[in-house]
Simulated scan of single mutants.
Amino acid sequence: MSALLEITNAKIIYDSAVEAVRDVSLSVDEGRVVALLGSNGAGKSTLLKAITGGLEFEEGVLEKGSVRYGGQDLAGRPTEWIVRNGLALVPEGRRLFINLTVEENLVMGAHLKSAPEMRRMKEEVFDLFPRLYERRSQISGYLSGGEQQMVAVGRALMSQPRLLALDEPSLGLAPLVIDAIYDTIGRMRDELKMTILLVEQNAVQAMGLADYVYIMENGRIVLDGPAQTMRNNADVQEYYLGMAGGEAGRKSFRDVKHYKRRKRWLS
């Protein structure tokens, strides 16, 4: 498999002073789901901004390393070029045009496409999300959180992406809705052969779907591997899946931090 997205030794700083990402390398192979996991502040969103052209809006700079998509360097590329070349982002918080209908939001995602392409993509989106077809004439601001997330994903799909980046798709949603969203992400990979970068805090859901997993802390990749291997890793089970000794049993964040500190002192 060839890597569609490659980040190599990336160092990203804000305001010429704050180092948000340190020496990060990761790759996303075509046709696979790759999960990037980590808590708030780990640097996940900063990496997404480097991929989708959003760093410059927040005084961010890729000071070292490279970000390549489809073999081309993304440094300095405007967002429109990135979208036109098949990389789409579903941002955290959905960011819909809340005064527009569901269908109007979808059309906004296809503004670079021809009318026949737009019609075909709408059919694909409505096939993936039948509920959106039922709600197509409703104002998006009045939809439930889960329905708004479906619109956000559908809008990104309207651009016919080669690579779809999803930023916290499960955030703030009920468990049943999360299951439905993840089922659809799996269909996008299996039926549409789509390449997906899944940025999440919900480790259980993400590892259940992903082919490969990276875990990020404090601006660095601290662990990576095939999803099955990661699920069986004792450290991952304890710190990210809420398991101790391979048996279910949630640990509090305080307990985890205490254990890490003690382990570091004794080493």
Rank of each mutant, 00 (worst) to 15 (best):
Y133H: 11
V213K: 00
R95P: 01
Q138H: 15
E80V: 11
L37F: 01
M150I: 04
V61A: 04
N233D: 10
R220K: 11
I51A: 01
M158K: 04
A3K: 12
Q148T: 07
R231Y: 09
V34G: 00
G249V: 06
D255M: 12
Y69E: 04
A206Q: 13
R250A: 13
S159C: 10
A174K: 12
L36H: 00
V107H: 14
E104G: 08
Q228E: 08
M188H: 11
I215D: 05
R135S: 05
R262S: 12
R254Q: 12
Y133V: 03
I215N: 10
E58G: 06
L166R: 07
V18M: 07
A248W: 04
N218A: 08
I7A: 06
A42T: 02
W81R: 00
V33N: 05
E123V: 12
S252A: 05
A156L: 05
W81S: 03
V151I: 08
I98P: 15
K263W: 14
I13R: 14
V67Y: 00
I181F: 10
E238G: 12
G219F: 09
N105V: 02
I178V: 13
R95Y: 08
I7P: 08
A17E: 06
V24R: 00
N233G: 07
G41P: 06
L47E: 01
I13H: 08
V34Y: 02
L143G: 01
D255T: 09
F126Q: 01
N232I: 03
D179R: 08
A42D: 00
A234E: 14
A88L: 04
E59W: 04
A227D: 02
L5Q: 06
D29K: 11
Y182A: 02
V222Q: 02
N233E: 04
D73T: 00
L96A: 00
R135Y: 10
S170R: 04
G242W: 03
T79K: 09
S252F: 10
V18K: 14
E200V: 08
L241E: 03
Y259A: 07
I82F: 14
Y142K: 02
K251F: 13
E191F: 12
R220A: 14
Q149F: 10
R187C: 08
Y214V: 03
R77A: 06
L4Q: 10
E59R: 11
T195S: 14
L166N: 13
Q72Y: 05
V83W: 05
S170L: 07
S252C: 13
T229L: 04
E92T: 02
G31N: 07
N99M: 07
I82A: 05
D224T: 03
K44L: 10
V107D: 12
A75S: 12
R162G: 12
S137N: 10
G219I: 01
I181V: 14
M194S: 10
L166Y: 14
Y14F: 10
R187P: 15
N233S: 03
G109T: 01
T79G: 04
P78D: 06
A234L: 12
E238K: 12
R131M: 05
L197D: 07
